[in-house]
Structure formats: C-alpha cells, structure tokens
C-alpha cells in the first residue's frame, strides 16, 4: 500500500512538471545527442567502406565504382570535423579510396 502511494506521488509530480512546461530535456541535451548521432553516422559509413579494402580484389568494377563514390561523398563530412580528427580521418579515407581506385583501374585496365 505504501509503495502504491509512493508511485502515485511520483507520477503526479511528473505530470505537474510536464504540464507546467518545465524544461526536463534542454535544447543542449538534444543538440548533443544529435551531434553524437551525426558523428556516429560518418564513422559508421567510414568503417563500412574501409572494412572492404582487404576484399577489394573480389569486387566487380561496378561495386568498386560505388565504393569510390561513397568515399567521395563522405569526404566533405569529414572535412567538417575539428582539426585533429579531420587530419587523421581524411588521410585514412584517402588511403581507402586510393586502394579501391587502384583495384578498379587494374580491373578495368584504365
């Protein structure tokens, strides 16, 4: 019985806070969450592309062209990172791209 009363009190308090428009989650928290999500996005894409370099000889020219295109699309997103991360990941992305383009060239003879 005592537990039930306690839960009811908490629920009422929470409802009052929401109705009163109290900023339970501030804009800053939303912004930080969005930024973290955006960071994860570029890194996931980076990891997905660069995880394929060791298999690159088994891809078709079209698959390789698509991967090179994804590298080019990712580059501007990495360029927006802060200086040190940008420097490291641009170089790493360039190495992936160069290898994929190299394998593509060796397959197509261009």
């Amino acid at each position: 019985m005592r537990n039930k009363r306690g839960s009811l009190a908490i629920a009422l308090a929470a409802a009052l806070v929401v109705l009163a428009g109290a900023p339970v989650f501030s804009d800053g928290i939303y912004a930080a969450a969005a930024a973290a999500s955006a960071q994860d996005d570029w890194k996931k894409e980076f990891e997905d592309i660069c995880s394929k370099t060791q298999d690159s000889m088994s891809f078709t020219p079209d698959e390789l062209k698509s991967l090179v295109g994804r590298c080019d699309a990712l580059k501007p997103r990495i360029e927006k990172l802060e200086e040190t991360q940008r420097k490291v990941y641009l170089k790493r992305l360039q190495m992936c791209r160069d290898l994929l383009a190299f394998v593509l060239e060796s397959k197509t003879g261009k």
């Binding site: 370099t53 060791q54 690159s56 190495m95 992936c96 160069d98 290898l99 383009a101 190299f102 060796s106």
Partner: peptide
C-alpha cells in the same frame, strides 16, 4: 602490411 601500406602509394603499378 595489409593492402593499403603498399598500394597504391608505394607501388602504383600493375
């Protein structure tokens, strides 16, 4: 070295 250490930066050749 994997692939990328050598190709294509050091050995850009077929």
């Amino acid at each position: 070295n994997g692939c990328e250490v050598c190709h294509p930066e050091i050995f850009p050749i077929k």
